[in-house]
């Protein structure tokens, strides 16, 4: 079981991801924008962060860059969950320091499997 932080401004998607990961046995904390995600990442030191790209107050890209620039948080893997599927956008996410870019729509079992693989890769 891992502690996973979700940053997603769409309530239906946030609840879907949270339900799926809780069902898979993880502890889940949710936030609805990049700024809150940055604060919660510092306060809770999650094992993994799942983040939307387009969010109010601070985009996922900016939040990811800020987290990766903080030595205390830089080792936390970040996965973008986004509908933005163009090559340049995916590259921007990876350049910002994300571990992976999961394109919407994703299936819950696919999400659980990717989360398991990434946690395994980081020994969590």
């Amino acid at each position: 079981m891992a502690r996973i932080l979700i940053a997603e401004d769409e309530p239906d998607i946030r609840e879907l991801v949270a339900f799926t990961l809780r069902f898979a046995g993880h502890e889940v904390i949710t936030t609805s924008n990049g700024e809150e995600a940055l604060q919660q990442a510092g306060a809770l030191i999650p094992d993994l962060i799942l983040m939307d790209v387009r969010m109010p107050r601070m985009t996922g890209y900016d939040a990811c860059r800020a987290i990766k620039a903080d030595p205390a948080l830089t080792d936390i893997p970040i996965v973008f969950l986004s509908a933005k599927g163009q090559d340049a956008e995916i590259q921007t996410g990876l350049d910002a320091g994300a571990e992976e870019y999961l394109l919407k729509p994703f299936a819950p079992d696919q999400l659980v499997e990717r989360v398991r693989a990434i946690l395994g890769k980081f020994g969590k």
Binding site: I13, L16, F19, F23, A83, K84, G85, P105, P108
Partner: peptide
């Protein structure tokens, strides 16, 4: 338009999958 369609599609597909599981 594709981006705007993908978000509701994720919700519909995801909740259907959860129910089916």
């Amino acid at each position: 338009v594709s981006h705007e369609l993908r978000t509701p599609m994720t919700a519909i597909k995801g909740y259907v999958d959860i129910l089916t599981m």
